[in-house]
Each structure stands twice: as C-alpha cells, then as structure tokens.
C-alpha cells in the first residue's frame, strides 16, 4: 500500500521533485515499479525519477538496479518511447544487474511530457 505521509515530505518526494524539475525546464523520466514477484525491496507503485543529466530521486529497489534504470531512463528521455524493464536475481540473463534478495521486479520507464 502506498500511503502518502501525513504532510508530504516535499524535499524527498519523487513526484514533487519531478514536477519541480519540469518547471525548471528539465527533461525528466519517471520509473515506476509495476509488478513484483517474491521478495522485492520496494512495493508496486514506487517511483524513481531521473533527469537528462542522470540525477535521480526515489527508488525502485534497495539500490540494486537503480544504476541500470537511470541509464535506460536517459535513453527514454532521448527517444520519448516508454520501456518496460524486468529485473530478476543476478544471473547471466537479460540484465547484468539483479536483485540479491532473489525477487523479480518489473519497472515501467516513461518520459514526462
């Protein structure tokens, strides 16, 4: 369940930060956990927001796959085409990075605007 805190912690809230970046004229991508299987560090609905310089706020895992999501997000900002990423336990499959906890997550990455 995604509960917004009593009064939003605006300095750390990814969606508030993304809106601020947009107002500053930055290009922004938003990554969202849309599915999890097994043990996953961040619940469905969690966000990582990324700007074109690779600055980011929020999280979609416990720090295991953020690096990969950031580089994909920079591509998405360039192309404007949303991507669905899937991460599983660290192995030789699709991605070099993985979740040490043994879970799997699906992350939707889209450009803002």
């Amino acid at each position: 369940m995604m509960n917004d805190s009593l009064y939003l912690d605006e300095a750390r809230d990814p969606l508030i930060i993304a809106e601020g970046w947009m107002k500053d004229g930055k290009d922004v991508a938003i990554a969202t956990v849309v599915e999890t299987w097994g043990s996953a560090p961040r619940p469905v609905g969690s966000h990582l927001v990324i700007d074109a310089d690779g600055n980011f706020h929020g999280s979609v895992s416990g720090g295991c796959v953020e690096g990969a999501v950031v580089s994909e997000a920079i591509d998405v900002i360039g192309s404007g085409k949303a991507r669905m990423l899937e991460f599983g336990v660290a192995d030789e499959t699709a991605w070099q990075v993985g979740l040490s906890c043994g879970g799997r997550i699906k992350v939707y990455v889209e450009r803002l605007g």
Partner: peptide, 25 residues
C-alpha cells in the same frame, strides 16, 4: 478501498493503477 497499486486487464487492454491515499491518522 484497498490502497493497493497494480495492473488490471480491462476492455482488452492492460492498465496500471497507482493508488495514492493520504496517510490515515
């Protein structure tokens, strides 16, 4: 009601519902 985010299939499409509920207090 549940506050749970997730995907749903409807009208032959897949929608993701991201639910934002205020913190109940």
């Amino acid at each position: 009601r549940s506050g749970s985010s997730g995907s749903v299939e409807a009208e032959g499409r897949t929608f993701f519902l991201n639910v934002h509920l205020p913190q109940p207090r």
